[in-house]
């Protein structure tokens, strides 16, 4: 190998070493390192760069050392196609979990919960309360007073059309009555539950 090529190879290695893993926790970082070492041994050409992983571009991991309880907590409210709230400071969030509604204030115990169709109310401040209807998803409350809500779909409650909801409810009830097997029945039941939740969300306004 000529000297120039050696230099090139070294530069490539150096470049690879600087792939940032800022989003990874310590344990993940070890796993990524093993992966990259393995990659280094098997790559087909010396100029091939290390691939990025999901954590290369992720935001910072959850910090464990929490100093007291902050006054406001950070809310991340994400949908696959949008982010209504991204690292927004809020007072409180009310979340519809499958086991019952619960409120999240700063300093809440770390919790993971599955959501049912219902209303997520975000109390940005005393005067500013935003209500979103979600069809389901997950909510993670982290130790550092950060809350992640991941829903499949969310719409502001005032944008729900009562007429369309009623129509949808009737449609799903008809489907439930005509269901031939358990799968169809389960599908219809999900529709009915979701529509019922929407009806109560509209009425509860």
């Amino acid at each position: 190998m000529s000297r120039a090529m050696m230099r090139l190879a070294r530069r490539v290695v150096g470049k690879n070493a600087s792939v940032p893993v800022r989003g990874a926790s310590t344990q993940s970082r070890a796993s990524i390192e093993t992966f990259m070492k393995n990659f280094e041994q098997h790559k087909t050409s010396p100029t091939m760069e290390h691939p990025a992983t999901s954590s290369t571009f992720a935001s910072t991991p959850v910090t464990e050392d929490v100093k007291g309880t902050p006054e406001k907590m950070k809310l991340n409210f994400y949908l696959p196609h949008d982010a209504p709230f991204d690292k927004t400071e809020v007072d409180m969030v009310l979340v519809p979990a499958t086991t019952g509604d619960f409120g999240v204030l700063p300093g809440h115990v770390p919790t993971v919960s599955q959501l049912r169709p219902g209303v997520v109310s975000v109390h940005v401040s005393d005067k500013d309360v935003q209500r979103y209807f979600v069809s389901g998803g997950f909510c993670f409350v982290h130790a550092d007073s950060t809350t992640d809500i991941c829903a499949v779909e969310a719409v502001p409650v005032e944008q729900l059309d009562p007429e369309a909801v009623k129509k949808g409810l009737a449609e799903h009830q008809a489907k439930f009555a005509n269901a031939k097997d358990d799968v169809e029945k389960a599908h219809a039941q999900i529709g009915i539950d979701c529509c019922n939740a929407m009806v109560s969300a509209i009425e509860g306004k």
């Binding site: 989003g23 990874a24 926790s25 344990q27 993940s28 070890a30 796993s31 990524i32 390192e33 093993t34 992966f35 990259m36 393995n38 992983t53 999901s54 954590s55 571009f57 992720a58 935001s59 991991p61 959850v62 991340n76 994400y78 949908l79 696959p80 196609h81 949008d82 982010a83 991204d86 993971v112 997950f138 993670f140 982290h142 992640d148 991941c150």
Partner: peptide
Amino acid sequence: KSRAMVNPFVRLLGDTPGA
């Protein structure tokens, strides 16, 4: 817009390509 949603899962479950 679709990028944000990936983060909470990576943060909670880790990123373990080397497992």
